[in-house]
Amino acid sequence: MRLEYFQMIDRVRACGGGAITAEARVPEASPVFEGHFPGHPLMPGVLLVEAMAQASGYLILAAQGFARMPFLAGVREAKLRRFVAPGMVLTVEARLVHEGSGYAVTAASIVGPDGGRICDAELTLRTLPFPAPELAAAMRARAQEIGLPATAAGGVA
């Protein structure tokens, strides 16, 4: 993870059949932890939601062959169950619940190194034509860096 750049996903372990599993290592140090919180650094819950949204976004990008850009539009039933400390290696998972016209819904979760569930939510992402070619190119480049397949067969899991 590079929190300051909103790069939440480090590596895709598996993607296909309407689901994605990715790895995200919380940095040991970040300016974020200086404020959240002094003397008690914790990964902010909103950034955990962002990590689930990004895993969902990569899943949708792959499922739709990078045809459209997913944007987070709704967060339902988000539960932040455990604290996340600097240095922790997280497993971020998302499953496609529904692929609608111009939107998709995922069930996402984050699991800790001991297998314990850290958080989960149902996310709605609006899918729009890429608003700029630079964004499409950047998404493809980043997807390649983290090992996301160019396409992932399979719809709703």
Partner: peptide, 23 residues
């Protein structure tokens, strides 16, 4: 538009269809 997205999702689920809102 955001409430409408939730409504379309609920309609899609309730009727087992994909409402072609974009079209």
């Amino acid at each position: 538009s955001l409430d409408f997205l939730d409504i379309v999702f609920a309609i899609d689920k309730a009727f087992g269809i994909k409402v072609p809102v974009e079209q």
